[in-house]
């Protein structure tokens, strides 16, 4: 078996209807894996940027980038090697948990409490995906009711 590795691919596409379905369809149709996918318009342009986290052998990753590039509305495909990668998470925690401890933990991961209600509070953190993993592991002790991860965004150094 060829070794599979996690890769981050950025795709610059025309900001038009159905681009996302073309890309999602390409991945499902050819049996490629998507770990996460984020998309948003690039400010002041007619383009959008997708950041796709995928995994596969070197050969598969090469095919993914080529097949992406083959789609007509795709302008550029970057397969990142050296990059800054950031992900965000929102976590809803019962108010019955210790506010001080939660604040300290969240703070350690560059996060903060963004909302406090009568029954629950919401904290947000934004960091490298591996650090998000650690944070979500650590936050478990406060019995989180819901967790949302954004998926990665990335820029080449």
């Amino acid at each position: 078996m060829e070794q599979t590795e996690r890769r981050v691919i950025s795709v610059i596409v025309m900001n038009e209807a159905s681009v996302l379905s073309r890309i999602a369809g390409l991945f499902s149709g050819r049996g490629y894996n998507i770990e996460s996918l984020t998309v948003a318009p690039i400010p002041d342009s007619k383009y959008s940027r997708l950041t796709i986290v995928t995994s596969g052998s070197v050969r598969v990753i090469e095919q993914i980038t080529k097949q992406l590039h083959k789609l007509i509305p795709v302008l550029k495909v970057y397969e990142h090697a050296d990059l800054v990668e950031t992900e965000m998470a929102l976590v809803k925690i019962p108010m019955s948990e210790s506010l001080g401890d939660i604040e300290a933990l969240t703070h350690a991961y560059n996060g903060r409490i963004v909302n406090v209600g009568s029954d629950t509070m919401i904290v947000t953190v934004s960091d490298e995906p591996s650090r998000i993993n650690h944070f979500l592991e650590a936050i478990k002790r406060f019995h989180p009711k819901e967790i949302v991860r954004s998926g990665s965004v990335a820029l080449e150094r």
Binding site: A17, S18, S21, R22, G25, G29, I72
Partner: peptide
């Protein structure tokens, strides 16, 4: 139709 033809065409358009 464009949803169906997407994986079996080089490109497709829905004209709006």
């Amino acid at each position: 139709a464009v949803g169906i033809s997407r994986p079996c065409t080089k490109h497709n358009y829905l004209v709006t």
